[in-house]
Computed example of a mutant assay.
Amino acid sequence: MKKQILAMTVLAAATAATAASAADLPRNNYYSQPAQGTYYNWAGWYAGAVVGYQWGDVPGTNTKPSGILGGLTGGYNWQSGQFVFGGETDLQISGADDTFAPYKFSNPWFGTLRGRAGMAWNNVLIYLTGGIAYGGLKGESGALSETKTHIGWTLGTGVEFGLAQQWSAKIEYLYADLSNRTYSITGVGNGLETSMIRVGVNYRF
């Protein structure tokens, strides 16, 4: 899992570097007058939607839940020159599940509450994000099933592109670790370690 995190972080960094180079190309004239070295205004409230794919594993079993996810997100940005920082929250449903006899584990929903900080080059924002993760984990074995809510942490990176002053699109990688809780069907502590790639759009108010 650590190798996956490193690989995805390197990939995100490479994407970010490409985006930063692209930001130096001439832009359409619908952006506002430059202010403190940047054209695009990232400050303010926003809300949007994300879709993506999730994969991971449940420690203590051989199950590796994976599947499509989707949900809603919202947050607020402050901007000082090129530096952009703020907070974001999201809530998603997920189809991630896996069966490895005698167990089946699934992650039907999860959410995060995170800080974000990054640098903007005109309408390209490269950022790091991290904070609290929480979600449901359902374990099944034969006719027995248990569902518990887990709390943990998340860390990730992403690139967001301003399409027009009120619209932006992003691609983001997150790693989340939902801490162990004891399940009677396994007799040990089980949690969820999961990675996800998400794409989304935001509307700025």
Score class of each variant (00 low, 15 high):
G44M: 07
G44T: 00
Y46W: 14
Y46S: 06
A47M: 10
A47P: 00
A47L: 12
A49E: 04
A49Q: 01
V51W: 10
G52Y: 09
Y53T: 08
Y53N: 07
Y53G: 08
W55F: 14
G56K: 13
G56A: 07
D57P: 00
V58K: 02
P59Q: 09
P59R: 13
T61V: 12
N62K: 11
N62M: 13
P65Q: 11
P65V: 12
S66P: 01
G67P: 00
I68G: 13
I68T: 14
L69P: 03
L69I: 12
L69A: 14
T73H: 14
Y76Q: 10
Y76N: 05
N77L: 10
W78G: 01
W78L: 07
W78V: 05
W78C: 12
Q79I: 05
Q79K: 10
Q79L: 02
S80P: 01
G81P: 04
G81M: 09
Q82N: 15
F83I: 13
V84T: 08
G86Q: 03
E88L: 02
E88F: 03
T89W: 07
T89F: 13
Q92D: 04
Q92H: 12
I93N: 09
S94Y: 09
G95L: 04
A96Y: 13
D97W: 06
D97F: 08
F100I: 01
F100S: 15
P102M: 10
P102S: 11
K104E: 15
P108V: 14
W109H: 10
F110Q: 11
F110L: 08
G111P: 04
T112D: 10
L113V: 14
R114K: 15
R114E: 11
G115Q: 04
G115W: 02
R116Q: 08
G118C: 09
M119A: 08
M119Y: 15
M119W: 15
W121N: 14
N123W: 03
N123R: 08
V124A: 09
L125Y: 14
Y127R: 02
L128C: 05
T129F: 02
G131Q: 06
G131N: 04
A133I: 01
Y134D: 07
G135I: 02
G135Y: 02
G135C: 05
G136E: 10
K138I: 07
G139F: 00
S141Y: 00
G142N: 11
A143H: 03
A143S: 15
L144D: 14
L144F: 09
L144M: 03
E146M: 03
E146P: 00
T147I: 06
T149S: 12
H150N: 15
I151C: 01
G152N: 02
T154V: 11
L155D: 03
G156I: 00
G156S: 05
G156Q: 03
T157C: 04
T157A: 13
G158S: 07
G158Q: 04
F161D: 04
G162W: 04
G162D: 01
